[in-house]
Computed example of a mutant assay.
Amino acid sequence: MTEMVATRQAYGDALLELGEKNKDIVVLDADLSKSTTTAKFGKKYPERFFNMGVAEANMMNTAAGLATCGKIPFVSSFSIFATGRAWEQVRNTICYSGLQVKIVATHSGVSVGPDGASHQCIEDISLMRTIPTMGVVEPCDAVETRKAILAAVDYKGPLYIRLGRAAVPVITKKEDPYTIGRANILRTGDDVAIIACGALVVHSLTAADMLAKEGIKAAVVNMHTLKPIDQELLIKVARQANAVVTAEQHVLDGGLGSAVASILARTYPIPIEMIGIDNRFGQSGEPDILFKEYHLLPDDIVLAAKRVVGRKKK
């Protein structure tokens, strides 16, 4: 049976590791530390934990100040507040100066579930990816989340790490390589390349299995870093397959699909299909029902793969 762990849970555990190893690690939260799981760090290292209250903009400015004093702040809230409510402070105070602030936001995407559209941030990748100097990472499971958090300390400059609320299958292993900015090929295939991030990586693997039964060989790439994106590997798999499907739990505008299309349009134009949320807000509902409503399931990836294979030049 596949182990199910929420990426936010892995975040809290990874912070404890960092706290023990590095005394310059400080953690700030906006009165949501139980939900983001930063409360674990606060309980063990209270002198390095700051509950800033419901004041996200002030939290980002405080984190920036701590970074100028040699600290490495990890700043957390729900993604809608960390990237939306505090966007100006992230842009002008943190990113303009290229400070070592790590924004780790939880409760992203429609998988937040019953909390509804107000809390289902499906625009955060776009909001963060467009800011100069900001890196953007979305781990696919708990194991990869731990690696991302540990690697964030050595990443030069501001970094946004996107995490979820619900438990997701653990599909990577501790020994698997992980480097921010370097994608991982999880499955090889030369008929179509599926480029995915976050919760849709496991759906892409399932889709590849379904396609294999129909004689279609699909590569699956875990594009855990959306910025700086791994252009070299992306172009490599695109050349091998000559058809690409992107899969993300995010609006199509400004997300993974947009990033992939932008690169391939300049370097290797081929047919592309995109799985994502098409110009809609979220709504209240259980995650599995919402994934069906927004066409984010393996079946949807399979259909997109068949469409894009049919568009390949003969």
Rank of each mutant, 00 (worst) to 15 (best):
M1F: 07
E3I: 06
A6W: 06
Y11H: 11
E17Y: 03
K23A: 15
V27D: 14
V27T: 15
D29C: 12
A30Q: 12
K34W: 10
S35L: 13
K40S: 11
G42V: 09
G42Y: 06
Y45R: 12
E47H: 14
F49G: 13
F49W: 13
P73W: 08
I80S: 14
A86T: 11
W87P: 00
E88V: 05
N92I: 01
T93D: 11
K102T: 08
V104W: 04
A105R: 10
T106A: 14
T106Y: 04
S108I: 04
V112S: 09
P114Q: 05
D115N: 08
D115K: 04
S118H: 01
Q120D: 10
C121P: 03
I122D: 04
S126F: 05
R129P: 00
T130Q: 06
I131A: 03
M134R: 12
V136C: 06
V137R: 00
E138L: 02
E138K: 09
P139H: 03
P139K: 07
C140P: 00
L150K: 13
L150D: 07
Y155A: 10
Y160T: 00
I161G: 08
R165W: 04
A166T: 10
A166R: 09
I171K: 01
K174D: 09
D176L: 12
D176C: 08
I180C: 09
R182N: 08
R182S: 12
L186I: 10
R187C: 14
A196Q: 08
A199S: 14
A199I: 15
A199L: 15
V201R: 07
L205P: 10
K213D: 14
G215P: 06
A219P: 03
N222Y: 03
H224D: 06
Q231L: 03
L234Y: 11
L234A: 12
I235N: 04
K236T: 13
N242M: 11
V245L: 08
A247K: 02
A247L: 05
Q249E: 15
G255N: 02
L256P: 00
S258G: 14
S258C: 02
A261R: 00
A261F: 02
S262A: 06
I263V: 12
A265K: 01
R266N: 08
Y268S: 02
I270K: 01
M274C: 07
I277V: 05
N279A: 08
R280L: 04
F281D: 05
F281L: 14
F281C: 09
S284I: 06
S284L: 07
G285T: 09
Y294T: 08
L296F: 04
D299F: 02
D299H: 02
A304M: 07
R307T: 04
R307F: 01
G310M: 00
K313G: 02
